[in-house]
Write a protein that binds this DNA or RNA. Sequence first.
DNA 1: GATACGGATATCGGTAAACGATATCAGGGG
DNA 2: CCCCTGATATCGTTTACCGATATCCGTATC
Lengths: 105, 105
Amino acid sequence: MLRDLELGAVRVHILHHAARAPVYGSWMFEELRRHGYELSYGTLYPALHRMEEQGLLKREDRVEGGRVRKYYTATERGRAELERARRVIRELHREVVEGEGPDPG
Amino acid sequence: MLRDLELGAVRVHILHHAARAPVYGSWMFEELRRHGYELSYGTLYPALHRMEEQGLLKREDRVEGGRVRKYYTATERGRAELERARRVIRELHREVVEGEGPDPG
DNA sequence: GATACGGATATCGGTAAACGATATCAGGGG
DNA sequence: CCCCTGATATCGTTTACCGATATCCGTATC
């Protein structure tokens, strides 16, 4: 039931991290696991591809330590979308977490 | 891109309201609109049905002012799921809204 | 320079949900 | 009894998840 929320949160986390420093798939996978988000590579990679197609991330292929990695960084459009996401989260937090008491009317 | 997040938020809002007082479809529709969530009846009603099938909501048919309405109230299971959702939202808020500065390392 | 290795990335088929247009339902008034 | 209206339901198309499986590509070894 909360799966949509969690998958939405996954995308926001991706943008959040990719706005700070380049990230690649399997690192992101582990980072998300550390935060309790369980998902499949069959979900993560297509999501990264879509976000690139939509212009939210830009990809840069690198070879590091003998590994081929596709690094993703948030674009301007990605940062703007992240800001939108933050507004949604702030609103949701205010509505259902802060205001937990009985119906104010 | 944020659609998943928004639809997840819609479900949380439904549980949140249905835990306070019985709600019916078109009222919930308007309430969500007031909070900026755009969605279709073809999305809302099947969602309510599913949440009932999953035991998160229980339905009670009433006639009020000559209108036939299906009122939904959160079950115990629904309240438990709402608590889970609150934890996810708190975590998400802490991670991507409160900690917005540069990478802490 | 051919081959095997392993981390990283890509894909496929089955399943489920969103969406919006359209249809249906049910009580009340004329 | 039939239409009006608010409310609820459904259908076909499209899109995404998911995990098992396949593929890619530097590197090491010989």
